[in-house]
């Protein structure tokens, strides 16, 4: 059975399958290209890119907690000019949509990044990171619908690329922020970013992360992420969602599709199994074939009580 459809649409983008990489877990592409065939992915979402290079936070930056990790990398990257000059030419060799995750502290930073990346050519989508928990002001946009709307409106003015807003779960209710982002011109939403947490070494009586707090990811957060996707999908059923949070297997990915995600990002799983993203894409296709499902889109939001 080869006539099954695995393709999904996110804004203007057609993804050959719903599996994309989670920003910050797949480098900029070259790091993974020896391990994973990028052309077997729905899209590649590269690491956060900022206006100026960033060295990130001091170490320790990642610690393990039960079935999860806390990270406080601090958005280490070489800056947008380096990305365009050094990383993008490599990515242009692949037949896969490239989505760049943007991060900044002011609206002007995001506008600058969106302009540059749109003009560069070879970038297909922008994921607006308004929710990094590990930098000062990183969460300001994500907790306020009005600020989110202003940011997305300004970015929308300078780009015709598919815009995806990445939402934080560290809020009382994600729905008003999701709605504000969409009303301001966001084509799609990514959720969830990591959950803020911490861990303490009782022997040393010290925080285990140099940054004190970090973002929790991995299987420990999956039930929360799934609930968030379902809540936002129920409120905004026509908005494509990229669901993420602790997805380790094709079964996990299918849960997110059923909850209402159109695409699925594989993040922390790549740290454990470098080929997790393409393994899950293959597993999802096998599931469709085994169950006689002609189109993966039939699964989206198909959960019942």
């Amino acid at each position: 059975m080869t006539n099954i459809n695995t393709a999904v649409k996110i804004g203007k983008l057609t993804l050959r399958n719903p599996i994309v990489t989670g920003s910050g877990t797949f480098g900029f592409g070259p790091e993974m290209a020896n391990i994973v065939d990028l052309n077997k992915l729905g899209a590649v979402v590269v690491k956060s890119t900022s206006r100026e290079p960033r060295l990130g936070n001091p170490t320790p930056r990642i610690v393990e907690t039960p079935s999860g990790i806390l990270n406080a990398i601090g958005l280490q990257n070489s800056g947008v000019d380096n990305f365009i000059a050094e990383k993008l030419p490599f990515l242009r060799n692949y037949d896969v949509p490239i989505i760049v995750n943007l991060v900044g502290t002011e609206v002007a930073d995001y506008v600058h990044l969106a302009e540059k990346l749109t003009a560069a050519g070879g970038v297909h989508g922008l994921e607006i990171n308004i929710s990094c928990p590990n930098v000062s002001h990183g969460c300001d946009f994500a907790v306020d619908p009005a600020l989110t709307a202003e940011l997305i409106r300004e970015v929308r003015k300078v780009t015709d690329l598919t815009l995806i807003t990445k939402l934080s779960p560290n809020v009382t209710d994600m729905v008003p922020i999701a709605r504000a982002a969409v009303d301001a011109g966001s084509d799609a939403l990514s959720l969830i970013n990591t959950l803020i947490g911490t861990a303490i070494d009782v022997r040393k009586r010290k925080f285990r992360l140099a940054n004190i707090t970090g973002g929790l990811s991995g299987p420990a957060v999956k039930p929360i992420a799934l609930r968030c996707v379902w809540q936002v999908h129920r409120a905004l059923p026509n908005v494509p969602l990229i669901g993420m949070g602790g997805i380790m297997s094709a079964t996990d990915a299918i849960e997110f599709l059923l909850a209402g995600a159109t695409a699925i990002a594989i993040g922390t799983a790549t740290f454990v199994n470098p080929t997790a993203s393409t393994d899950i894409a293959a597993g999802l296709e096998a599931y469709l074939i085994e169950n006689g499902i002609a189109d993966v889109n039939e699964l989206i939001g198909a959960v019942t009580q």
Partner: peptide, 21 residues
């Protein structure tokens, strides 16, 4: 500590004397 071992998690960074991380 090297969380991923494949160069993508940025957890195992080290500062060198030439200023590179």
């Amino acid at each position: 500590a090297m969380p991923c071992g494949i160069g993508v998690c940025m957890g195992c960074v080290l500062d060198l004397t030439d200023g590179r991380r």
